[in-house]
Design a binder for these strands. Structure first.
Length: 412
RNA sequence: GGUGGGUUGGCUGAGCGGUUUAAAGCGGUCGUCUUGAAAACGACUGGGGAGGAAACUCUCUCGCAGGUUCAAAUCCUGCACCCACCGCCA
């Protein structure tokens, strides 16, 4: 959510942002609603002030006056509430502003390449990760489908060890950076999910809701890490707070399609270590660069070629002010595939979740939040299998993971 | 899942229909005193909103949402969460 005052004073800019994101939010009634609400609010507060004065010295007269006030309020208060809710509903739908330097556009080619590794030509016929997983008995998609449905899978053998290794590898790097490690709930209340900017309900929602419970499965630990401080005021001296959280991630992926929807690339469940930062507004851009640098450090360490994209306005989530993705080279299909994503959400999530900080001078203000993938194990696994395959059909374990996995080679 | 108890400001804790504009204490900030510090004393000390250039004034907020009443922290209903015991259980 944006500052309601800012919205009222900058409707043109808001409309431009909505249009640049390709969203449809009707803000034409905002000014009208706010004016009508303001008028009623003044009258209601006036009446309440009168009533408060009356209740100090009850008498027959004051009780009669009180009845009159009550009757007028009975009419006005529901109107006030209704207008407030209508206004809130629109404000809640308005996306964040967009960083001036973020590329505009709606197509994949509109993403701006920040930097890209060179990719070597394969010296032999490469397999994709599905073929490798099958040959080396590392995953079972058929069993996943039988037990849980399409896009679920079992990891087996070294794939399991690799997943655990990747998690510990990422945590070890982040611990050195001073992050606080977390294992978060895999479920969260819709209010928190919504606060982070995910749509918890509806046919297009990416969130699984539990029947009969006010709970949903998280799509990322961003939800639970951001929700950790919901409704709190943090001390400026404690910022930035750097959190690293492991969770399973569940996504309905309704309506997803394309060649990347097979195998491990787009699945209903995966494991992820997520980074989440709470910081002062003036340092959030610097922190965004910092999160990006950590994502690069993690993939460079794994020895996997990647490129960095500054994501186009048309592909930003509602909360994101700017977003950088890392795409790893996935030679099995000869494509770049998204493996990490880091967003600066400025004060958008903080406002929706009610997270502020107290400045040294005692004032309070909304802080900024940022998130970034440290490691999403399923996609990292694809990149590892496809980049580290050898002509004899075996797969090498990346050097940095050997101590965690306990072997150097996957073979059957 | 069952039964009982509870949820008040940063913390402890009083209040159980109208002198509560939420007592008191702790903590915090500033000041007086002091070479400095402590102690003592004094003042200030949650958040949202409206109006105002500002000083300030008003309003909402006692877990959340409704209701009763001229008047609700206080009474009623529903929900959430916490604690204890029982049941179940990795």
């Amino acid at each position: 959510m944006l500052d309601p005052k800012f919205v009222l004073e900058n409707l043109k800019e808001i409309e431009k942002t909505i249009q640049e994101r390709g969203m449809k939010v009707d803000v034409s009634f905002v000014a009208e609603l706010a004016a009508a609400r303001g008028k009623i609010l003044s009258r209601v507060e006036e009446l309440r002030a009168e009533r408060n004065k009356l209740s100090k010295k009850p008498s027959e007269k004051s009780i009669r006056q009180g009845t009159e006030i009550k009757n007028e309020l009975k009419n006005l208060e529901p109107q006030l509430k209704n207008l407030g809710e209508q206004l809130e509903k629109i404000l809640w739908q308005i996306p964040n502003l967009i960083h001036p330097k973020a590329p505009r556009g709606f197509e994949e080619k509109d993403n701006k390449s920040v930097r890209a590794d060179k990719v070597a030509k394969p010296a032999f016929k490469l397999l994709d990760h599905e073929q490798l997983a099958k040959k080396l008995d590392l995953a079972d998609f058929e069993a996943g489908a039988r037990v849980a449905g399409a896009k679920f899978y079992y990891l087996k053998n070294e794939a399991v060890l690799l997943e655990l290794a990747l998690i510990k590898y990422a945590f070890d790097i982040l611990l050195k950076e001073g992050f606080t490690p977390f294992i978060t709930p895999d479920l969260a209340k819709p209010a928190i999910i919504d606060g982070i900017g995910f749509v918890p309900r509806g046919p297009e929602s990416n969130i699984y809701l539990l029947e009969g419970e006010d709970l949903g499965l998280v799509g990322t630990a961003e939800i639970t890490l951001g929700g950790y401080h919901a409704g709190q005021i943090l001390e400026e001296g404690d910022l930035p707070l750097k959190y690293a959280g492991f969770s399973h991630c569940f996504r309905r992926e309704a309506g997803s399609y394309g060649q990347f929807s097979k195998g491990l690339y787009r699945v209903h469940q995966f494991s992820k270590v997520e980074m989440f930062l709470f910081c002062r507004p003036e340092e959030s851009e610097k922190m965004h660069e910092y999160l990006l640098s950590l994502e690069e450090k993690i993939f460079r360490g794994l020895g996997i070629p990647y490129r960095v994209l500054d994501i186009r306005a048309g592909d930003l989530g509602a909360a994101a002010y700017r977003k950088f993705d890392l795409e790893a080279w996935m030679p099995g299909k000869g494509e770049w595939g998204e493996v990490t994503s880091t967003s600066n959400t400025t004060d958008y999530q903080a406002r929706r979740l009610g997270i502020k900080y107290r400045k040294k001078n005692g004032e309070t203000a909304y802080l900024h939040t940022l998130n970034g993938t440290a490691i999403a194990t399923s996609r990292a696994l694809i990149a590892i299998l496809e980049n580290y395959q050898k002509e004899d059909g075996t797969v090498e374990i990346p050097k940095v993971l050997v101590p965690y996995v306990g072997k150097k080679l996957i073979r059957r």
